[in-house]
Design a protein around this nucleic acid. Structure first.
Lengths: 349, 349
DNA sequence: GCATTTTGCGCAAACGATTGCATGCGCCAC
DNA sequence: GTGGCGCATGCAATCGTTTGCGCAAAATGC
């Protein structure tokens, strides 16, 4: 393996001191470094194929130009766009990200925070899921730069980026309501996940806003955000409240599961049952019927979180906004129709 | 921000030299380190919350315990499982991965190799796509540890892990043939991507094997592995060869596009047109008709590549197999049926 | 009980960059 | 002509570990 070219090598070749070379290459060294001597050094360094050793620089400067990214599971289609968004702002600034998967386990999260620390990351972007996890808050409390994604943090000054879930849920609710649905069930997300909580709260607020009694509406919580739970919970809803004409699901995968369930028992969507999702995951437009859902801007969320992080690292901690809410928008496809037996449908039929 | 505890701090507190502490904590220091002195040191270090600084260790040891992972785009559903597979073997051994997205650009790839080098990664796992890209080969040629995924490398000794694409394509071909299809078109992948090439070659070999003249079968190459190209190419196939009864697609997304096209022009799948995919991407079971495809084991491929990498790093380079082929298997769903007008169908009809 | 091997630990030099301080030079002004 | 200022460069310390070397003490062998 070829030995790498170091500052010393370049310096020796030019008969100058390493510090001189270091300064000549130092990015921001005022315009002063446009002197011809510096020019010659840079030229020579490039020609020799010099590449700075960021590990050494990191040790000395206590800045590794590395950002830790913690997420539950990169396999979940939600996260890759976030990662790309983060990367899109980090990379041009010379940072790289170090991605770890927590599998939503508090224990793993604790370990992984240590792993990231040992490797000297300059900050952590935390794509949170658990509605409460002390670890990352502890880290932030020490003054270490942290930005969270998808979770509102109340009792701290950790900046966070979230999507406007409340508005999103309200939008689907409004849509269902405008189609004439009054028996709207909520297939809720897991109670220990922040998005689950948030969306449930938004559902209840919307119900009230539209003059429906929240307690009269059935809410069936799921244990995981997956199709299996969607099927199970949909069955439960149908059993508990056969009068239900629409199921507002906390995310797309639950909605997909619900869809499968109703199809399997011969209840047509959207003719006999309207179903909505959340997130607008890829490929959703392929399935039949196209799922009406809410599109969230994952890429932008990642990019935003990364910019906030960079601002913090630039020392402008005070200037970074505590809260950033990204707009979402309703994506109407075919999974919502007027309820069977509604006035309009009788007229049409 | 709390200052981190260093070896020196621990040493000072115990009145010993840093090197003593270092050795006491050094993982593999023979059983010798079970001495009570070492025990006390470890205990004390843990109690003080000592965490080794891997940056410093990396500088000194020229081993950062970091593996670079290059892939085209983490957003592509193929890659997250690979990443988890890699992580599953790296993490228990104390390594972390540094993921970069090349967007299939040779230029970006060149830059990113430098980025990874600067950060002192111990090796690179390259989830290749381009059927030829010199950069990574150059890197490997210098003796730097490289393992590639999904691409066969001929003129070098870089270990690679691939799925048994040839067998997979042959399996679908055999299935279509057994259903009575004789006018089988291939919706091929981009010619500059290795998987595109490989699958085309496998298609032609299979045709010959089953007694069909490869040149008589229509092959429509796509420019990208996406639904849009799938639609376009499917239309082209239909126009060029209306007698086609089955389209064997180079991957699932192309198949999805083809499906969309045929549906849009009123050609029913599978009644009038059989379609097959490749990869078995998630959510595929949700669409109608379920796409018959080939499942590849991405997680295992990643895990395997990572093990090979670790073997190389352990100095067992010679013992590392040059080629690893992972089995794939056919997943039959509903998108394949007997061709319209076949003897069997006439009998059934 | 003495010679020899083993063991345990301290010392100090790395690893490759950055950076405060010192030095020396040229240049300008008075 | 000399004092002072600025600028470029060199010197050396530093970041936190690891590790070869050497010395002393302990353990072993006969």
């Amino acid at each position: 393996m070829k030995k790498r070219v170091t500052l010393k090598d370049v310096a020796a070749k030019l008969g100058v001191h390493t510090s001189t070379v270091s300064r000549a290459l130092g990015l921001s060294n005022e315009a002063a470094k446009s002197s011809e001597a510096a020019m010659r050094i840079r030229e020579r360094a490039a020609q020799m194929g010099y590449r700075p050793n960021r590990v050494a620089a990191g040790l000395r400067k206590q800045r590794t130009m590395t950002i830790g990214v913690m997420l539950p599971d990169i396999t979940n289609t939600l996260f890759p766009p976030i990662v790309r968004g983060i990367e899109s702002v980090l990379e041009p600034r010379g940072y790289v990200s170090m991605i770890v998967n927590t599998d939503s386990s508090a224990e793993r999260e604790r370990q992984l925070v240590d792993v990231l620390h040992e490797r000297g990351v300059d900050g952590i972007i935390h794509a949170a899921v658990l509605s409460s996890d002390p670890t990352i808050l502890d880290v932030a409390a020490t003054g270490f730069p942290v930005v969270t994604l998808n979770r509102k943090i109340d009792g701290s000054n950790v900046p966070y980026v979230i999507n406007d879930e409340t508005f999103g849920i309200r939008s689907v609710f409004a849509l269902l309501h405008s189609f004439g649905h009054r028996h709207i069930a909520h297939l809720a997300g897991p109670a220990d996940l922040s998005t689950g909580q948030l969306r449930l709260a938004a559902f209840q607020r919307s119900a009230r806003e539209f003059g429906l009694e929240p307690n009269a509406l059935v809410v069936e919580p799921s244990l995981r955000f997956d199709e299996g739970e969607g099927r199970r919970a949909a069955a439960a809803i149908h059993a508990r409240a056969p009068e239900t004409t629409a199921v507002l699901c906390a995310n797309d995968r639950l909605a997909l599961g619900a869809l499968q369930h109703f199809q399997s028992v011969g209840i047509d969507c959207p003719q006999s049952m309207s179903i909505t999702g959340f997130n607008d995951m890829p490929l959703l437009e392929m399935i039949k019927p196209g799922l009406t859902t809410v599109r969230v801007q994952q890429f932008r969320a990642g990019a935003k979180a990364a910019s906030l992080m960079l601002e913090m690292l630039d020392g402008a901690s005070d200037a970074v906004p505590h809260e950033t809410i990204l707009p979402v928008h309703l994506v109407q496809r075919e999974s919502v129709a007027r309820p069977r037996g509604s006035v309009e449908q009788r007229l049409a039929g």
